Computed example of a mutant assay.
Amino acid sequence: MIVKPVLPFKYVFEEIKISLFVVLAIVLVTDIPVIFFSHHYSEIPVTIPTTLGIAISILISFKVNQSYDRWWEARKIWGAIVNDSRTLILQLKMYTESDNSMIKTMAYRQIAWCYTLGQSLRGQDPYENLKELISDEELKKLQDQKNVPLGILDLQTDSIKELYDKGDLDKFSRLQLEETMERLTASMGKCERIKNTVFPTTYRKGLHLAIYLFVIFLSLTEPLNLSIFIEVPVLLILSLVFLFLEKAAFRLQDPFENLPTDTPVTSISRTIDINIRQLIGETDLPKPIVAEDFYIM
């Protein structure tokens, strides 16, 4: 997640450099007939690029709104995961004896689940942080799971059933814990839905083509019939605005791609890690993840 109000120029340029080079090539090519065949050149009415520019603005606005909705939904889901993770441990402490070893086991599993869910959504190794949090026996069980976060939730539900069978939980307590597990499972499913629902690629290609057409038509209008040394920078700056907004929307539409615009699932998981360890009485806590650059992951 980008946390600084001003983006580095290098990052902005890296995001749109290919598109800017295409715009530069378009401007230079469209200026050839103007320079060498000006007596045969018929200028295009300025209303054409104006109308196209308005249409592009509307399309970009729509795409930015839709992309931000996806990003914000992902952020709200992880906010719910924070709350439900804390709730699970608080419920275990409230419903069972304080010296019950299962509280610490399930607390560590919940920490592991948060890290693993974030890594799975980003296409990273889901087992990376599990060795210190889950027993070797349970790790072996998870090796056969295609969906590791779901496997951890399965272990959690088995533990709840075990506590109930031993008499450590009454029926009401078990129902409350089951509701919390249900919410965690639903949050995982919502994240997977966002991850697996592809934003239509034809929409982006059409918008890109419209921006290039806008540059072509604008370069051939009378107001832009300037010296090439003035026209090129003007058109590059105008197109840069459209291109960067379109690229920003493109990045926001996929909040789990291990990019600076991601939902900060690693940072959120570390916060959950710290909170849960505090709840079970530990004092040796991991440090919060801080932004080392203009973004936090």
Rank of each mutant, 00 (worst) to 15 (best):
K195N: 09
G123N: 10
K131M: 04
L226E: 04
N83S: 13
T221H: 08
N65V: 13
Y127C: 01
P288L: 02
W71G: 06
L218R: 07
K146E: 15
I44P: 03
E292V: 08
Y108Q: 11
N65H: 13
M1I: 10
L238P: 00
D136R: 14
F36E: 09
I89Q: 09
L150K: 11
A210W: 03
L259S: 12
H40K: 14
N225K: 15
I26H: 03
F36D: 04
T87P: 00
T51L: 14
P126K: 04
I111C: 07
D254P: 03
I216Y: 08
A186M: 09
L142T: 05
G118H: 02
E246G: 04
N129T: 03
T116W: 05
V215Q: 06
T283M: 11
I18L: 11
F172L: 13
T157L: 14
V82D: 12
V290W: 00
I152C: 05
T180E: 02
D154A: 07
D158Q: 15
L130D: 10
I56S: 12
Q124Y: 12
T96Y: 06
Y164N: 08
D154R: 05
K247R: 15
I230P: 00
I58P: 05
G151C: 07
F21G: 06
L279C: 05
R251E: 15
A248K: 14
L184K: 02
K10M: 04
K63I: 03
V82K: 14
T202H: 12
R86D: 10
L184C: 03
M1K: 08
S239R: 07
S173C: 02
E97I: 05
T96H: 05
L7I: 10
R204L: 11
T51E: 07
P286M: 07
L259V: 11
D168S: 15
I56C: 13
W78V: 04
K140M: 09
V241H: 07
P49K: 03
K10N: 09
V241K: 06
I280Q: 02
F214G: 03
E128P: 00
I268Y: 02
D144G: 13
S19I: 07
I268G: 02
V148H: 04
I194C: 08
T87V: 08
A112T: 08
S135E: 12
L150S: 12
F294E: 04
T271K: 13
D168P: 00
Y108E: 11
P233L: 09
C191K: 09
K63W: 00
S219C: 13
W71V: 02
D165M: 12
E138I: 10
T96G: 09
T47V: 15
Y41F: 15
F256G: 01
I103L: 06
G123Q: 09
L177Y: 01
E246I: 00
I216Q: 02
V3G: 06
P126Y: 07
P5D: 15
E128Q: 14
Q156Y: 01
Q176V: 07
T221K: 06
H39K: 14
I89N: 08
Q278A: 01
L209A: 13
S173V: 03
F242I: 01
I276E: 03
I60N: 06
